[in-house]
Amino acid sequence: MKFFIYLMISLLLLSQYSNGSNLIFKSCNEASKNDPNLSYDFCVASLNEASCKSKSHPSKLEDLVGLSIRLTKSNGTNIISIISKHLKNQTHGEYVRACLQDCFDLYNDSLSSLEDAMVAFNESKDFDTANINVSAAMDDSVTCEDQFKEKKGESETSPLTKENHVYFQLNVISLAFIEMIRQRR
């Protein structure tokens, strides 16, 4: 009898994970078809990993929006830590250090924007405000990357190119899902 109960619970959990994973595949597929900035493979890999780590198994598109915003916030917090390490590195020149400080401020602002997006989305179902705030967070990563290219006479190589690109992609996922929900209402 205990074995039967264990088996039933295991099958139920497996089915929930499978349904959540299925939702991720389907949603990422639809989103990537509608947004040329969104990589299907990146979307699936990011959300499956986040779902496994958080032990939350999304059952509807709204769950994926929350999951993607939380994932982006976590990534942004990690980028702030990376920037802090770069700022402590005395081998960077003055211009790069100034850019890094700006990036630090931009990412702090973007985390606030993502928090505002989460509140707007979850509490008031204000998709326009959520969209605006996620877009602002996404723009912060672009601004961070672009400023390294603005040095007069020559551009500097950004030590954050990979991080900025990933952060941009994570925000694109959230925006695509918010838009999908908006279109279905």
Rank of each mutant, 00 (worst) to 15 (best):
24 I>K: 05
169 Q>G: 07
96 V>C: 05
85 K>A: 12
152 K>W: 04
34 N>P: 01
98 A>K: 14
60 K>I: 13
29 N>E: 14
27 S>C: 07
133 N>R: 14
26 K>W: 04
4 F>S: 15
103 C>V: 05
130 A>D: 04
9 I>D: 10
97 R>P: 00
141 S>H: 08
59 S>C: 06
49 E>V: 08
151 K>P: 04
163 E>R: 13
142 V>M: 07
86 H>Q: 12
171 N>A: 11
131 N>W: 11
101 Q>S: 13
127 F>L: 11
140 D>F: 06
119 V>E: 09
129 T>A: 14
107 Y>I: 08
8 M>A: 14
116 D>A: 08
52 C>M: 13
21 S>C: 10
82 I>Q: 13
154 E>R: 12
165 H>V: 11
123 E>M: 12
111 L>P: 07
125 K>A: 10
71 L>H: 07
146 D>A: 13
130 A>H: 01
54 S>I: 03
41 D>I: 06
163 E>L: 12
68 S>V: 05
142 V>G: 05
44 V>A: 01
64 L>W: 02
87 L>E: 01
40 Y>W: 01
125 K>I: 01
157 T>C: 05
107 Y>A: 00
74 S>I: 09
185 R>K: 13
177 F>Y: 11
115 E>W: 06
84 S>A: 15
37 N>D: 13
171 N>T: 10
81 S>T: 10
75 N>D: 11
78 N>E: 14
166 V>K: 02
68 S>K: 01
184 R>M: 06
45 A>C: 06
77 T>I: 15
76 G>I: 09
117 A>P: 05
16 Q>R: 13
145 E>R: 15
79 I>L: 10
8 M>E: 06
76 G>H: 07
17 Y>V: 10
184 R>S: 15
121 F>E: 02
128 D>S: 10
144 C>N: 02
128 D>E: 15
104 F>N: 14
162 K>V: 14
113 S>C: 07
47 L>W: 02
117 A>G: 03
35 D>N: 09
122 N>V: 10
31 A>W: 07
90 Q>I: 08
93 G>K: 03
131 N>F: 14
59 S>Q: 15
118 M>T: 09
173 I>S: 03
103 C>K: 04
137 A>P: 04
77 T>N: 15
15 S>Q: 11
108 N>I: 13
141 S>G: 11
127 F>I: 05
167 Y>S: 13
18 S>R: 09
151 K>F: 11
57 H>Q: 07
159 P>S: 02
122 N>I: 05
96 V>E: 09
96 V>N: 01
45 A>D: 12
119 V>W: 10
150 E>G: 14
26 K>V: 12
134 V>W: 03
54 S>D: 07
51 S>F: 05
148 F>D: 03
